[in-house]
């Protein structure tokens, strides 16, 4: 299951990480080594095994429907690289 350069680019696009053309080869090599190594999992017989999603064995607790958070726009916006008044600002998006 070797990754080709097109797949490396597709993955980078999905992950929104800019990859320069010169980097593709190196990344492809590294990822293929790692995936080659991970392939050892194919040896394991997992027939009938239910997947484990987490290390906790509890049922989920629920919060009450109470408004006890929010109301601090300045603290929400304080770290923003760009803002316009009480809004976050990004380059114009075309839908």
């Amino acid at each position: 299951m070797a990754l080709d350069p097109a797949t490396v680019r597709r993955i980078a696009t999905l992950a929104r990480i800019r990859v320069e053309d010169a980097e593709v080869d190196k990344l492809q090599g590294e990822l293929n080594v790692i995936f080659g190594w991970i392939e050892q999992l194919n040896e394991v017989d997992v027939t009938g095994v239910a997947p484990l999603t987490g290390a906790s064995h509890m049922a989920m607790k629920m919060r009450e429907d109470v408004v006890n958070d929010g109301g601090y726009p300045e603290r929400i916006l304080f770290n923003a690289p760009d803002r316009a008044g009480e809004f976050f600002a990004v380059p114009k998006v075309v839908e």
């Binding site: 993955i11 999905l14 992950a15 990822l31 995936f35 394991v44 997992v46």
Partner: peptide
Amino acid sequence: RRRIMIGTYVLSAGYYDAFYLRAQKVRAL
């Protein structure tokens, strides 16, 4: 960046079962 790429790949369409789901099963074992 490398780990984000690995993670994106193992969850992507067509590879989820072979990688992520299998890993969760091995995790159960």
